[in-house]
Amino acid sequence: MNAIIIDLVLFTLLAAVAIQIVRLNHLFVVTMLSGVFSLLTAGLFITMDAPDVAFTEAAVGAGISTVLMLGTLALTAHSQKTTKGTQTVPLLVVIATGMALIYSTFDMPAFGDPEAPSHVHVGPFYIEETPELIDVPNIVTAVLASYRGFDTLGEVVVVFMAGVGVLALLGHKPIRRAVEARAQPANRREEDA
């Protein structure tokens, strides 16, 4: 019961943040709010007993994404162009997609259902055999690093190649701007010399 109340309050805050993200045009504030959105989402994951997902959400959503968006914001304009009139077609598409997603949840097993397909298929095998087959206490770690170790290696290689590609295309030198030169204090240049 208590956890449900906390869930409800978190969801209310989440909806409020989402509405504000849509309404505001100031991109810096929107970046801040998307960080808050990630933090609230991670809190919801925690209340659903998914700490590993919450870990990822906190690290990627709240940490890295905010920093990346700020880096992008340094290169673009600071406020969003306002569009004239109401846009009915995008709204209808969003509402239809949302209805379809809600409709699809009716077919899903209940939260924490022990008879759910994911809990009766190969799950019991991993839970029973992992301690003997692989000497790793955490089953998720054993699956990621051992059972599908080559897959994880491939993912890491892909991410590495993407990073190298972006660096090779964009370089690491920032775009020089007059604003930036003005922001440099005088004593800092003396230190460098």
Binding site: A62, G63, G71, A74, P174, E180, Q184, R188, D192
Partner: peptide
């Protein structure tokens, strides 16, 4: 993460850019 994020935001305020800013100076 909160600490790192706040540092990034404040660095953004100070220099209007992220990354190695001292090169051109």
């Amino acid at each position: 993460i909160n600490f790192v994020g706040t540092i990034a935001v404040l660095k953004f305020f100070r220099y209007r850019a992220l990354g190695d800013i001292d090169d051109d100076a």
